[in-house]
Nucleic acid binder design. Structure first.
Lengths: 144, 144
DNA sequence: AGGCGTAGCGTGCATATACACCTAAATGTC
DNA sequence: GACATTTAGGTGTATATGCACGCTACGCCT
């Protein structure tokens, strides 16, 4: 067994977070005019694809703590971009959905996002990203 | 140009953060007995390798906002794991260094960390991680 | 019907992250 | 040497992240 990779400098978690921070700056800068934070963009994107969905399920999809999502939803609900209602079937469940205003804001932000994403793909190469994305997906499935 | 990768689901930043969250849980769980948070472990690890270093330089190495690091250092300084002193050469510069207590705590935490890292490497394969880590490093250099 | 276990959510607390803005010290310019 | 500029750091505010804990509603069992 290699000792090499058992040095904290090679921590999987640390390297992922470090890289995430580095990359986020570009997207944050590009999307600033839209007034949507990185995480909010991700939440709205998922919501648009999923339709009304329980908080827990959305959290699972985002690989995010349920309680973290609850708080991240607050500013979106306050801003009218997201709607949160009890399910008619099960009073415990809160169904979260994107509103029309949310869809509009998302569409606006997507324009800025696309620029950043295009620049990023241009830098690293589409093929490289395809492979990297696949490895990240595998990593997530691994730990689930 | 492929439209495929210009869908928010393929966002580089989003995928990185999502994966980082997923992976962090394992390390956090494993290291909980040590009482060191993920980020704190990373900071101490860097400090041990670097020796006394200005806040800004440490922030650069961590690809972290300087002001974020300042706050992350607070609990470490309060806990006596890190020392923060003005530089004798330049009164503007604050030199940050790991203390003996910090080294001890780091050594303790490293035991727990090693278990998590070993499990992770076992799951994804050492070779796969070597390649992935390299791609992440390239990504960071790219955006610097 | 009553009681028990469980499932879904929210809150209190602590840390993490970063932008805008401020302060102080060093440096450069004349 | 005086003053503008640049550089290193910290603080106010807002969002992000997750654990421990508590509450309510549902389902089951008797």
């Amino acid at each position: 067994m290699t000792d090499f990779l058992l040095d904290p400098a090679h921590c999987v978690s640390g390297n992922l977070h470090k890289t995430a921070r580095a990359v986020s700056r570009l997207y944050a800068d590009a999307m600033r005019p839209a007034g949507l934070a990185r995480s909010q963009f991700a939440v709205l994107g998922h919501l648009e694809r999923l339709g009304p969905v329980p908080v827990s399920e959305l959290a699972d999809r985002l690989y995010m703590e349920r309680t973290t999502l609850t708080r991240n939803l607050s500013p979106l609900v306050d801003g009218g971009l997201v709607d949160r209602q009890p399910s008619p079937q099960d009073a415990r469940v809160k169904l979260v959905a994107i509103t029309d205003a949310g869809r509009a804001k998302l569409a606006e932000a997507r324009g800025y996002w696309r620029e950043a994403q295009a620049r990023m793909l241009d830098s690293i190469g589409e093929d490289a990203w395809r492979k990297l994305e696949d490895q990240l997906r595998q990593l997530r499935r691994m730990v689930r």
